[in-house]
Amino acid sequence: MVMWRTLEDLRRTWRPWFVVGFFALLALGLYLGMRPTPPPAAYSWQASFYHGGGIFALTLLSFLAFARWPWWLRAVLLSLVGVAVELVQSLHPTRSTDWHDIVANSTGLVIGLLLISGYQYVLRRQAA
C-alpha cells in the first residue's frame, strides 16, 4: 500500500519537529510528575490515565523522532522515566508513590511498542 510509504515519508520530513515534541512532552511530564502538588484528578482513574497516556505518547514520539533506537532501549529509557517520577514523588510529603502508576506506565509503554512493531512489520512486508 502506498499509505504506509507516505507515512514513512512524513515521519522523515517532520522528524525535527517530532524531536522537539518528544523533549517538550518529556519536560512537561517530568514537571507535572515531580512538582510538589499533583495535577487535579477528580476520579481515581485519571491519575492512571495521565501516567499511561503520557508514556504511550512518549513511546510513539520517541519512534517518530528516533526511529533507529532498538525496542529494548526505548523500553528501558521510558521505564526509567516512569520509575524516576515515582521515586521523586515518594520524596515529596504531599505526593505518594502508587504501584498502579507503574502498571499504567508499563501498559502505555507496551501498547506503544506493539503499535510501533506492527507498523514496522507492515513496512518490512511491503518492502519484500
Rank of each mutant, 00 (worst) to 15 (best):
P93E: 09
V76F: 14
R68S: 08
Y43F: 15
M34E: 10
V83D: 04
P70M: 01
Y43N: 14
P16W: 06
S62G: 08
R12L: 15
W99T: 03
W45K: 11
W72V: 14
L64H: 11
V83L: 09
I55Q: 02
L91K: 01
F66W: 04
I102P: 00
T13F: 15
L109H: 02
L87A: 14
Y50P: 07
L61V: 07
L78K: 03
L78E: 03
F23G: 04
G53P: 09
D101H: 03
Y43R: 14
Y31A: 11
V76Q: 10
A75E: 06
W71A: 15
L61K: 04
I55C: 02
G29P: 05
L25V: 13
H100C: 09
G108A: 02
A75Q: 05
L109W: 02
R74K: 10
R15N: 11
L73K: 12
L30S: 12
R74I: 04
T94N: 13
A104E: 01
W14E: 00
G108Y: 02
S96C: 11
L78M: 09
V81P: 05
P40M: 00
P93H: 12
L77I: 13
F66N: 00
L10W: 15
T107M: 10
E86V: 01
V20P: 12
V76D: 04
A41W: 11
P36D: 09
L30C: 12
G54E: 04
L25Q: 00
G108E: 01
V20Q: 01
L87D: 01
D101N: 08
F23Q: 05
L78T: 04
R35M: 09
D98Q: 09
G54D: 01
G112R: 04
W72S: 12
R95C: 02
S62N: 08
L32E: 01
S44A: 15
M34N: 11
V81A: 01
Y43V: 00
V76Y: 11
V83F: 07
A41I: 08
Y31W: 15
T107I: 14
I55R: 05
P39H: 05
P36N: 08
M34H: 04
Y43C: 07
P93C: 08
S62R: 07
V20F: 13
G82R: 00
L32H: 09
V88A: 07
F66D: 08
R12A: 12
G54L: 02
A67N: 12
F56M: 02
A67V: 09
F66P: 10
L26N: 03
R15A: 02
E86P: 04
L87E: 05
V103I: 13
W45T: 12
W71R: 15
L25Y: 02
